[in-house]
Design a protein around this nucleic acid. Structure first.
Length: 586
RNA sequence: CGGGGCGUAGCUCAGCUUGGCGAGAGCGCCUGGUUUGGGACCAGGAGGUCGCAGGUUCGAAUCCUGUCGCCCCGACCA
């Protein structure tokens, strides 16, 4: 009885005809990026509503593979797995101020008593609440908790299939330490674990410096998979290892060009109704690079002027740091009119009654053009240093392709990427606000120093597919593939051929290899196409011609060529190939 | 939140401008037969509240209003 049952279950797992793999010949209309298209076509996922997907058997298996790798490496790094609730009391979020910060992205529900609950988009509040109640001595630290759990974010715009969804699986970990030195150790441990995880997944990734918040320095790193379809912009130095999220990217101080002395006289010109860089540069026949863009910001309510070159954009993170401001926003039209004595579009640095913050590139402009702080007038022949002197000069702009690397003599290259992981030094933000304190050896109370570490599990799959596919379909890495080997008998009506195929897959099963047997009664071409679409790493074809010679055909999905092996060696050889490929990823 | 597109069979879509008999095609699905190394062929068949609600009309997939959903661009995104 038990034996029979086991056999039945095995067959349900292994035989194509007994599982559920709804492949599609045509592209689904709504899929825009390769990973989305292929995940739907290969029968991995189906959408229920915008930003929520069902994982079908094949997709779920791949997801489990990713989860397993993440779990093994987190355990190895000494993190403790727990499972926190998805529903949180809103009060907890109000206590840290994030109820307001998150705004509409927070999913909210009311229970039958009318109490407001939050569906957790992340768990800093919940874990800190747990720790404040149960950990209170330095003897209990350090500790790192993690969970793999569904997160909810009411994204303004879910998109790209599984890449940006409203409900997704996340591995989130939280470290608690006695001080920053120990936090750094926990951080490094997680960082290393992340490298191992993504290496094992077979992903090619770049670690970039990211916006770091309160601690500063290299307090945050994102793990990015480079892909043109990625949502995040980043820069990478073409010479050294410097890489950063575009939000964060510093720009080297050395000048791109040596400024020549300018003797052009300052002159006021009539520019009726020309308010934008494009309009003014077209009207005056000058280059946007000659223009000095003057933006009025409100830093904690006080107006300041920010100068960047016409073809550059202000990086508000850098500006906020330079100003030391907690709140920063572009000034409204009324403030601009009051500060510049002109309507929006005619601001310039000369004669402004507020402090001037200039990006370095502005100081290299010669024969510049700026607003005249007078309606319908601009100034030409502007010479920074001669005609105005900023109160502060430094790096204030968003990096561009080709900008100088801040670490070496190389140039920065603009890239796009998919964020698959993020490690972050939180400091005491949550522990202080929620009262997660510990007593040191002298009996003194301190807030714990925290770090948090996230991995988007679904994105691991999407990122892999996004960067590993061809016209025919997915090309799985051995470690994430839902099955490692596909056994493909070409004619199921041929009993001898079928028996051979079944024997090979049973032998592979016994060797601990994950096998799918395509036992469908379909034509060879049809099955080959589905095989390529599914993209399982190794394919074993059992066909009549080769079988007459006592051979079967093995083919790696990522190779063009196949090779034949004697039937009796097929399973052993296939298993060997898989094991070797897996070791290669470890 | 601003702008745009689309909702017709399981999937991809035609039909709508100019309302009119029984609402279509390809793929998929079911039955039978012939086939079997790169998405076969023949014969037969099942399958649709035309997103939903209201309106105009003798008559609405088609016109009008509202509404919901999905997709795209932008804004936003610890």
């Amino acid at each position: 009885m038990v034996g029979l049952r086991k056999e039945v279950m095995e067959e349900r797992t292994l035989r194509w005809s007994q599982t559920f793999i709804p492949t599609l010949k045509e592209d689904p209309a709504e899929a825009q990026v390769p990973s989305h298209r292929l995940m739907v076509r290969a029968g991995l996922v189906r959408q229920l509503v915008a930003g929520a997907y069902t994982y079908l058997p094949l997709g779920f298996r791949a997801l489990q593979k990713a989860i397993r790798i993440v779990r093994e490496e987190m355990d190895r790094a000494g993190a403790l797995e727990i499972l926190m609730p998805a529903i949180h009391p809103a009060e907890l979020w109000q206590q840290t101020g994030r109820f307001a910060d998150y705004g509409d992205t927070l999913m909210k529900v009311r229970d039958r008593k009318g109490a407001l609950l939050v569906l957790g988009p992340t768990h800093e509040e919940v874990i800190t609440d747990l720790v404040r109640h149960h950990i209170n001595s330095y003897r209990q630290l350090p500790v790192i908790f993690y969970q793999i759990q569904t997160k909810f974010r009411d994204e303004p715009r879910p998109r790209f299939g599984v890449l940006r969804t409203r409900e997704f699986l996340m591995k989130d970990a939280y470290s608690f330490d006695v001080d920053v030195t120990h936090l750094n150790q926990s951080y490094d441990r997680m960082y290393q674990a992340y490298c191992r995880i993504f290496d094992r997944c077979g992903l090619k990734y770049v670690v970039v410096e990211a916006e770091s918040g309160p601690i500063g320095g290299e307090a945050s790193h994102e793990f990015m998979v480079l892909a043109d379809t990625g949502e995040d912009a980043l820069v990478e130095c073409e010479r050294c290892r410097y890489a950063a999220n575009l939000e964060r990217a510093e720009i080297g101080a050395r000048s791109a060009s040596v400024p020549g002395p300018s003797d052009s006289p300052l002159r006021k010109v009539h520019t009726p109704g020309r308010t934008t860089i494009e309009q003014v540069s077209a009207f005056l026949q000058c280059l946007p690079q000659q223009m000095i863009k003057t933006l009025i910001y409100l830093a904690d309510g006080a107006p300041v002027a920010v100068l960047v070159r016409g073809d550059h954009e202000v990086n508000e993170h850098k500006l906020r740091r330079a100003l030391g401001a907690a709140r920063l926003e572009l000034a409204d039209a009324d403030t601009i009119a009051r500060v510049t004595a002109a309507p929006v579009g005619f601001a310039g640095p000369i004669g402004l009654p507020v402090k001037l913050y200039a990006d370095r590139a502005v100081m290299l402009v010669t024969d510049g053009v700026s607003g005249a702080n007078e309606a319908d007038y601009h100034l030409v022949g502007v010479q920074p240093g001669r005609d105005f002197q900023p109160d502060w000069i430094g790096d204030l702009r968003i990096a561009c392709d080709g900008d100088a690397c801040p670490r070496c003599v190389g140039a920065l290259r603009l890239r796009r990427g998919i964020e698959i992981g993020h490690v972050f030094k939180l400091g005491t933000k949550y522990s202080a606000r929620l009262g997660a304190h510990y007593l040191d050896e002298k009996g003194q109370e301190h807030p714990m120093v925290m770090g948090c570490y996230g991995i988007g599990i679904n994105r691991i799959l999407a990122a892999l597919i996004e960067t590993s596919h061809d016209d025919q379909g997915i090309i799985w890495s051995v470690s994430l593939a839902p099955y490692q080997v596909l056994v493909l008998p070409l004619n199921v009506a041929n009993a001898e051929l079928m028996q051979t195929a079944e024997r090979i897959y049973r032998e592979l099963e016994q060797q601990g290899i994950e096998v799918l047997l395509d036992d469908r009664d379909a034509r060879a071409g049809f099955k080959f196409h589905d095989a390529d679409l599914l993209g399982l790493p190794l394919r074993v074809v059992v066909g009549e011609k080769a079988l007459q010679r006592g051979e079967v055909e093995l083919k790696w999905r990522h190779h063009r060529a196949s090779f034949t092996v004697p039937v009796e060696q097929a399973a052993r050889r296939a298993a060997e190939e898989i094991r070797r490929a897996l070791e290669h990823l470890m």
